[in-house]
Simulated assay, not measured.
Amino acid sequence: MAQQVEAKVGSLGYLGIGVKDMAAWRDFAANVLGLMVAGEGSDGATLLRMDEMSRRFMVHPSGEDDVIFAGFEVSGKAQMEALEAKLNKGGVETTRATDDEKKARAVVDMIHCKDPAGLRIEIFYGPKVMFDQPFHSTRPISGFQTGEHGLGHIVLTVPDMKAARHFYEDQLGFLISDYISMELAPKFSIDLVFLHCNPRHHTLALAPIALPKRLFHFMLQLNNLDDVGSTHDLVKSRGIKLGMDLGKHTNDHMVSFYMQSPSGFEVEYGWGARQIDDATWHVTQHTSGSIWGHKRAG
């Protein structure tokens, strides 16, 4: 009997970001975040590395100052085709990548579609890896937690939470980690849902708020707490605006801080998040985002 192929994404493989100020982004990525600028792709995007993969971020001079695509990895051709069939059956139109698109992403194959808010979602397998040319940060940091966990996590603002949850949970196969209901002002609160597709506590979180940008923040997880502390000092010394100061989250227990990127959305820089084992994990809800700290700047 043939083994049934699981139709779900495995990790967040890469992000595409459209920006206005490419020079500011190259400086921020390399000299603050500690990413490795790895030249240009075939489509002119600046490539940023954080591990053995040839690109984790592709920065395009297209001016949106926002995420323009998100790439989710699956393990192989059968998994991609199973997910393609599942999406099509659910009424989501998918498109096979052209040779030029596959070259730009450096993948063996890829399909793409749109989420309910119009964000381009790419599902790929066979990324180019470069063990023969190891990742080297321009900063004295120990590196990032990636591997099966993917590059980190993203928080997206969505105008229709029901539609977004149906797409990401029922069609892409994300599982619920937990919920946070936060009061942002008297009589005004938002309910966020946190989703996982591997042991990382969450690869995706959805926020039902209408903002000009789709991307609320992305997160990078460091291998050492000292990397977070030294970068926090660097951010303050360079006068980069903090979004939230150092703190520890209630749900994933990550110690982190948030800084403003040159595009205006935030980057969470953290360490120490707990992981999920689906065999034992229980979904919970929280009414605060942090155990301590994470005070909003200004």
Score class of each variant (00 low, 15 high):
Ile111His: 05
Thr98Lys: 11
Lys102Gln: 03
Val108Ser: 15
Glu101Gln: 13
Thr94Ile: 12
Val92Asn: 02
Pro116Trp: 00
Arg105Glu: 08
Glu101Asn: 06
Thr98Pro: 06
Lys114Ala: 12
Pro116Ile: 11
Arg105Cys: 04
Lys114Pro: 03
Ile121Val: 15
Asp115Gln: 09
Lys103Gln: 14
Lys103Arg: 14
Cys113Gln: 05
Glu101Asp: 11
Ala97Val: 03
Cys113Ile: 06
Cys113Tyr: 03
Met110Val: 11
Lys102Ile: 09
Leu119Phe: 03
Ile121Asn: 00
Arg120Leu: 12
Ile111Asp: 04
Arg120Ile: 13
Glu93Tyr: 07
Gly118Asn: 05
Ala97Asp: 06
Lys114Gln: 15
Val92Arg: 02
Thr94Pro: 07
Arg96Tyr: 11
Asp100Asn: 14
Leu119Ala: 05
His112Cys: 09
Asp115Ile: 04
Val107Asp: 00
Asp115Asn: 14
Arg120Cys: 13
Ile123Phe: 10
Lys103Val: 10
Thr95Lys: 12
Arg96Asp: 07
Arg120Gln: 12
Ile121Asp: 00
Ile123Leu: 15
Ala97His: 14
Asp99Thr: 11
Pro116Glu: 07
Pro116Lys: 09
Gly118Trp: 00
Lys102Thr: 10
Ile123Ala: 08
Glu101His: 08
Thr98Val: 08
Glu122Arg: 02
Cys113Leu: 10
Val107Tyr: 04
Ala106Trp: 04
Cys113Pro: 00
Cys113Asp: 01
Lys114Trp: 05
Ile123His: 03
Glu122Gln: 13
Val108Cys: 12
Thr95Ala: 11
Asp109Trp: 08
Lys103Leu: 15
